[in-house]
């Protein structure tokens, strides 16, 4: 029985990850052959980095991901702190549900509705270029926010209420108390929220597709446009790099939220 369940688990993992492994493998292919692994080389990685389009998209993606995750972390943390201070349960739960809607909503719906809004507002304001970095950033912050709130909130809820009280008792203003005592306590949640937001922003395609203009292309959008012409292994190389980045970030996010919680469990 135990062996059977192990085989089952292994099977699931193989089915889930074999496409990715094949993709990674073919990114090291020495020729452009799709079905034939002729030899291993870093040729397509070199090819990838020699293209100015790729570089530009990489730069754009990083700028967008960093800005979106920083902004959503700041807003999300503040929102989580504020939400925990609400006394009325009805109000608190309503606000929480509303912030969670972008998480539940199909990306394509969020994307199209945002595009509509931006175009509508852009027309109202008389702008020629209605979509671009700004609209993309707003869209990314919007869908990252609930994840930040979701990862910060439990940390605030488990923090003893007496900690900020002790800080204020010893002479902190409420603001000082937040930065000197509360923030260090909820920091693991804030960091994992930040990393989560960063990964989400990094690999988002659907919402970005609808909310960006012609002059701002991110990596997922670039890959999509590359596949339209001809599928070359440099796409594999790019995809491999993105998968690796996201994996590393997710591991980091998990580690940062786990570490502190085990530590706290020991002390209680």
């Amino acid at each position: 029985m135990k062996a059977l369940s192990r085989i089952y688990t292994a099977l699931i993992f193989i089915i889930l990850y074999i496409p990715i492994v094949v993709l990674m493998l073919f990114s090291f292919n020495s020729t452009a052959n799709t079905g034939d692994l002729t030899g291993l080389s870093l040729y397509w990685y070199r090819e990838l980095f020699s293209s100015p389009d790729t570089f530009n998209a990489l730069k754009n993606t990083l700028v967008l991901a960093v800005s979106a995750s920083v902004i959503s972390t700041v807003i999300g943390t503040a929102a989580a702190v504020g939400l925990c201070k609400f006394k009325k349960n009805f109000f608190k739960n309503s606000v929480l549900s509303v912030t969670n809607i972008p998480m539940m909503n199909p990306d394509i719906v969020t994307g199209i509705s945002m595009m509509l809004l931006f175009v509508f507002l852009g027309t109202l304001l008389g702008r020629d270029e209605k979509l671009g970095f700004t609209t993309l950033l707003i869209a990314h912050v919007t869908f990252c926010l609930p994840y930040v709130i979701l990862s910060v909130r439990p940390k605030i809820l488990t923090m003893p209420r007496s900690l900020p009280e002790a800080a204020q008792d010893l002479g902190c203003t409420p603001l000082q108390s937040f930065f000197k005592v509360e923030l260090p306590q909820i920091l693991p949640g804030v960091i994992s929220g930040f990393i989560l937001a960063f990964t989400l922003s990094l690999d988002d395609f659907v919402i970005s597709y609808f909310t960006t203009g012609n002059d701002f292309q991110t990596l997922p959008l670039l890959i999509y446009s590359m596949t339209k012409k001809e599928v070359k292994p440099d796409i594999y190389a790019l995809s491999t790099l993105m998968i690796l980045t996201v994996t590393v970030l997710l591991i980091l996010s998990n580690v940062s939220s786990k570490e502190k919680s085990t530590e706290r469990r020991l002390t209680l």
Partner: peptide, 16 residues
């Protein structure tokens, strides 16, 4: 924070 009164809390509330 402006009172010259300090507190020892029930569960100590030390800053971890």
């Amino acid at each position: 924070h402006k009172r010259s009164i300090n507190t020892v809390f029930q569960k100590y509330a030390l800053f971890p």
